[in-house]
Design a protein around this nucleic acid. Sequence first.
DNA 1: CGTCTATTTGAATGTACTCAAAAGCGGTGG
DNA 2: CCACCGCTTTTGAGTACATTCAAATAGACG
Lengths: 197, 197
Amino acid sequence: MFEQIHDYLSRSARLSKEEVKIFEKHLELRKIPKKTILLSAGEICNFEAYINKGCIREYFVDRDGIELTLQFAIEDWWVSDITSFEDQVPSDMYIETLEDCELLVLTRQAKENLISEVPQLERMFRLMIQRHLSKLQKRLFKTVSSTAMEQYVEFITRYPTISQRVSQQYIASYLGITPEFLSRLRAKHLKGGKVAE
Amino acid sequence: MFEQIHDYLSRSARLSKEEVKIFEKHLELRKIPKKTILLSAGEICNFEAYINKGCIREYFVDRDGIELTLQFAIEDWWVSDITSFEDQVPSDMYIETLEDCELLVLTRQAKENLISEVPQLERMFRLMIQRHLSKLQKRLFKTVSSTAMEQYVEFITRYPTISQRVSQQYIASYLGITPEFLSRLRAKHLKGGKVAE
DNA sequence: CGTCTATTTGAATGTACTCAAAAGCGGTGG
DNA sequence: CCACCGCTTTTGAGTACATTCAAATAGACG
């Protein structure tokens, strides 16, 4: 149950065995069926979840009902609306399982306790957010500076696993285009790029 | 010299007078003329700067030489490429003064010393980044889900000061559109929206 | 097999871009 | 104080990228 996160914590936060154990003590395993909404806009997010198994997406919905997928998350990733979680303010996003999931959940109280037991985790959480921020900056940059086709190719190249696991409509909503247009892009891409396959 | 940041620190980080003093001890005042590049892509960012006076922009440059402005910063804001600064990796952005500036600069070493003197600042820095992240998420959402016109109107409404201080070409590069197209939007906006002015 | 949803295809439209040229504006030197 | 230079903004015409709406096809699941 804890093998993966054990690995994650030692590798990415360089925690000692002791610290890893304390960390794990505060986690709670939850199994969630697919198509479950874990958080809706308007609610306060009460979890940070490490994905042991499964696939999740975070998304916004605009006033016309169009969804923008902010992020897909699979095994070894964390999901949460960190702003809502930390500041205890209503979220403006949705978080939904796309597959049956096995999550290790850190509640707000547990996180507080955890940090007061192992203060240097404060730093780890800061670094996690920092990495997140950096990724998002690059994504914004690419969203603005390249065509949908370029972004699509980059997406399937960088996240081959994800692009096989999630349906096209969600990928379209990640790229910020309509499903119809993504379908056309795929058709063109198959024709153009299939020399070596 | 320290009035503004004094205010910032007490208000936004709820530091005690003592802590604020320690903080200020680690800052260094720098006066920079306008049109100065503070950071170029490829360099390692060695500062976090609080703006006492002036205006700065952070931007990326794509392979065609098109700039995307990530952020404008004026009095009472911080600027840095936090990823480059923290991880000591080459930056992929530029930071440039648009006006003559007066900055309170925190170097990497100073920040480390500061945090070890006042460990609870770790939390403040985390919260700063978190707010940043949250803003950026919303911006990405809007970039994708609304037209350039909507974004332009929102920009001048939300940042009236900034939109008066920076030239249109930079606003265009913030909105991710060409200067020509922004000019057309403005023309249309004046016609359409000027009933009450 | 039938139903429901996801994907593909088509035609018409809109949003934003490119390239080119003109007009406006700020600073500098005479 | 005016004239000129360089840079920013505006305007025009043609084009490309992506959308909308509608309908057809393909896949998934009971």
